[in-house]
């Protein structure tokens, strides 16, 4: 890894190489604006955001004041009951590989990055660790005792090359991944 490249630059480059998009924001307010913009652009009033932490209360308020609903669970667990966009928080990210890491304590938390065709991931800059070794050092205490969270590492949108090796983004999971990066 090129030491002169900061974690953020490396992370961004790797996410993009994996087919995702990174929006770097200078403040949390800007991040909230970016999310609103994405929903507005798609003309959406419902978004899946199960288990979004208290740190993002401002996002919830902002969306609600605008008339959009942040759903904890999909309205119906049927193929047409899934909102177009899911918003999730990434607890960590890995610069080396452009990987987002979600730590989920319950099932709802796992759905927003999985069921909708578009996944918006909220990430704090200081949560980017340099490499995979650092990630597993950080995760070890979480996975060592008591009830353990489910951890999902996400690198780019879902993909398949099962038909004649042709790479297609958007297999069973999202076809679009947007990382909204902001200062803590």
């Amino acid at each position: 890894m090129n030491a002169r490249l900061g974690f953020v630059d490396r992370f961004k480059a790797q996410v993009e190489a994996a087919g995702g998009k990174v929006v770097v924001c200078r403040s949390r307010e800007e991040a909230v604006g970016v999310v609103r913009q994405e929903l507005y652009r798609r003309n959406l009033r419902e978004v899946l955001g199960g288990g979004l932490g208290g740190r993002w209360a401002s996002l919830k308020e902002s969306l609600e004041s605008w008339g959009a609903k942040l759903l904890e669970t999909p309205p119906r667990l049927t193929p047409d009951g899934i909102p177009e966009v899911g918003i999730g928080e990434a607890e960590y990210a890995v610069a080396e590989t452009g990987t987002l890491v979600e730590v989920a304590w319950h099932r709802e938390r796992l759905l927003s990055s999985l069921l909708p065709p578009v996944h918006i991931a909220l990430l704090d800059e200081d949560r980017i660790v340099p490499d995979l070794d650092s990630l597993f050092v950080v995760l070890l205490p979480l996975l060592s005792q008591g009830p353990r969270p489910r951890v999902v590492c996400i690198t780019g949108p879902s993909r398949s090359a099962d038909i004649e090796k042709l790479l297609i983004l958007g297999a069973h999971g999202p076809r679009e991944l947007i990382v909204v990066l902001s200062p803590p």
């Binding site: 790797q14 190489a17 994996a18 590989t97 452009g98 990987t99 989920a104 304590w105 319950h106 099932r107 796992l110 995760l139 996975l143 009830p147 353990r148 969270p149 489910r150 951890v151 999902v152 590492c153 996400i154 690198t155 780019g156 949108p157 879902s158 993909r159 999971g173």
Partner: peptide, 17 residues
Amino acid sequence: QVMTSYVSLISGPYPGQ
């Protein structure tokens, strides 16, 4: 690939599973 799209770490069931 540098990394696959998903790597799941499953340590025990989530509540209700």
